[in-house]
Design a protein around this nucleic acid. Structure first.
Length: 513
RNA sequence: GGCCCGUUCGUCUAGGGGUUAGGACGCCAGGUUUUCAUCCUGGUAGCAGGGGUUCAAAUCCCCUACGGGCUACCA
């Protein structure tokens, strides 16, 4: 029995984005690989940025991918509650502990004062001024103020925060499982706030306390946390706790340009950055998710797993189960990866092709119904089979295979003019007549009827086949013509052909003047 | 500005002293298919730059450049 315990700890400030999904995925894979436990913890300590729908969205998204937490809000577990807001009362004693040990101190500066202070410094071209060993005595806190003054201010109780007292002259070194040794000079670190004016802990405190209390053994999170890990390591030391192992994941970057992938990039580049649809109330805007854009969850996890990790072999098709077997955190890449939607689409196509037709129908039938097409499950089964190799995403079935449901209003006129010869009209009329007379309208009988007609009349395939396709489908692109016709059915094919031949003839006559 | 992390085809990556620097996506060409797609074959294209160390450097060291992250009473 392994005691590996990892957590995915998102902040419910909005929809989970694709980078978050990958972080969750790697945590999940690592836990499963080691027979450990994967925990979901909601870090909702920032009440100003809290978005009520976000938590449910996060849970639903993970569910869609098949990433199941064993402990978490709504799931339970022995280490709950799993929402930090519900753990609020628990953090106080740890703050007191740090203050008593002389590792933390009270501050009375208001945020407005701090802002003014920073601006004043910036005006003198001093950028990124820090609240630290060099400046703390100029500020209003329990270190710089007299005991009486401190007590008085504490009694008033307004604007009281608690900061970490970072020791000077320390070299803080820790081993990152992805990056190796990382070191910081403690003189460069700021005295981070650990308890806010509203009584809520900041990420830094809550995270360390909860990771300790929940017995987290491995912290796998985004690279944006690397700099503050120095603080975290120091805090473990101050508390006298053993720090977990740290792995900092490379960031997922924009496909072009620079910077990490953001919410707006989806709209900008025309691909989703969220798993599921998200309605942003503030902007009154709806963002499509991977699901709505017709991606399969298993394709997305496969693609995402390879963005910043590789198995060390040439293999790249991995189900979630196979990923668990293959996952090795030591093979996580150090540098950021640009999001490549083309590759994501390729993966999706591979998964569509491999997916059983019945499962495809589960996805396709509701869409067909929504579009107002009255079709049977059996029809959709055959449709899925014929179209699956032609779809990168689910909607492609309907854009590329729309003619299975209705004759396109826009037919490929250019091709019709090129391939249709007026003198062949009698042949098409004859072919339509033979089709009408067929008992069995199957692809094989259709094939023999058409092919023997072509042979008997010493015609070329090129003179007949394209027109048959165009006449029945309106487009040159599609699955095997005879199988397509079989699925379309005799009545549809015959009536479409009759109409089309008239149109083609008219087109040709107009062209000839 | 400061601190930290990074840099191999356009993109994702393998390769960690001796390799014709490998694979995948994309793109191009050919084959298969009466079309399209799938599939198959081939091609295209890369070690950021400069110094060291070494018989030998993509690989180890240093510098530079570039990219990224952090620098909030946000996570």
């Amino acid at each position: 029995m392994s005691n590996v315990r990892v957590r995915f700890a998102p902040s419910p400030t909005g929809p989970l984005h694709i980078g978050g999904v990958r972080t969750a995925l790697y945590n999940y894979l690592f836990a499963k690989k080691n027979g450990g436990t994967f925990i979901l913890r909601i870090e909702d300590t920032d009440q100003t940025r809290y978005v009520p729908e976000a938590e449910e969205y996060i849970i639903k998204s993970l569910e869609w991918f098949g990433i199941k937490p064993e402990e978490g809000p709504g799931i339970g577990g022995d280490f709950g509650p799993y929402r930090q807001s519900e753990r609020k009362d628990l953090y106080g004693q740890y703050v007191t502990d740090l203050i008593e040990k002389g590792h933390a101190y009270y501050c009375f500066d208001t945020s407005a004062e701090l802002t003014t202070w920073r601006e004043k410094n910036e005006a003198q071209k001093i950028y990124g001024v820090k609240y630290n060993h060099a400046t703390r005595m100029e500020m209003r806190n329990s270190l710089s103020l007299s005991k009486e003054e401190t007590d008085r201010l504490l009694k008033e109780g307004e604007n009281v925060t608690v900061r970490l007292k970072i020791p000077t002259g320390r070299n803080i070194e820790f081993e990152d499982a992805v990056r190796g040794a990382v070191s910081f000079n403690s003189d460069e670190l700021d005295d981070k706030i650990i308890l806010k004016g509203d009584g809520m802990p900041t990420y830094h405190l809550a995270n360390i306390v909860d990771d300790h209390l929940m017995e987290i053994t491995h912290v796998i999170r985004g690279e944006e946390w690397l700099p503050s890990t120095a603080h975290h390591v120091l805090m473990y030391e101050m508390f006298g706790w053993t720090a977990p192992s740290f792995s900092h994941l490379p960031l997922i970057l924009k496909p072009v340009g620079s910077g990490k992938l953001s919410k707006r990039d989806g709209a900008k580049f025309g691909f989703p950055v969220f798993p599921l649809e998200w309605h942003d109330k503030e902007e009154d805007k709806t963002y499509q998710g991977f699901k709505e854009d017709g991606f399969l969850p298993e394709a997305v996890t496969n693609f995402l797993s390879l963005l910043g990790w590789n198995p060390g072999t040439d293999e790249e098709m991995f189900s979630l189960e196979e990923l668990i077997k293959a996952f090795d955190p030591s093979r996580i890449v150090k540098s950021g990866a640009k999001f490549d939607i083309d590759k994501a689409r390729w993966f999706n196509q591979q998964y569509i092709i491999a997916k059983p037709n019945t499962e495809l129908v589960d996805l396709l039938l509701p869409i067909a119904t929504e579009k107002g097409f009255d079709v049977s499950e059996d029809f959709m089964l055959k449709f899925a089979d014929l179209m699956k190799e032609r779809a990168e995403v689910i909607p492609d079935f309907f854009t590329a295979g729309g003619f299975f449901f209705e004759m396109p209003t826009e037919i490929d006129q250019k091709m019709a003019k090129k391939k249709y010869k007026l003198e062949n009209r009698p042949h098409f009329d004859a072919l339509i007549e033979s089709m009408e007379g067929m008992q069995q309208f199957t692809s094989s009988s259709l094939e023999s009827v058409v092919k023997s007609y072509i042979a008997d009349n010493e015609l070329s395939f090129g003179a007949i086949m394209p027109i048959l396709r165009l006449g029945a489908c309106g487009t040159m692109k599609g699955p095997d013509l005879f199988e397509t016709m079989e699925l379309l059915g005799k009545d549809t094919v015959v009536s479409r052909m009759k109409e089309s031949i008239e149109i083609f003839s008219a087109l040709k006559k107009a062209q000839n003047g």
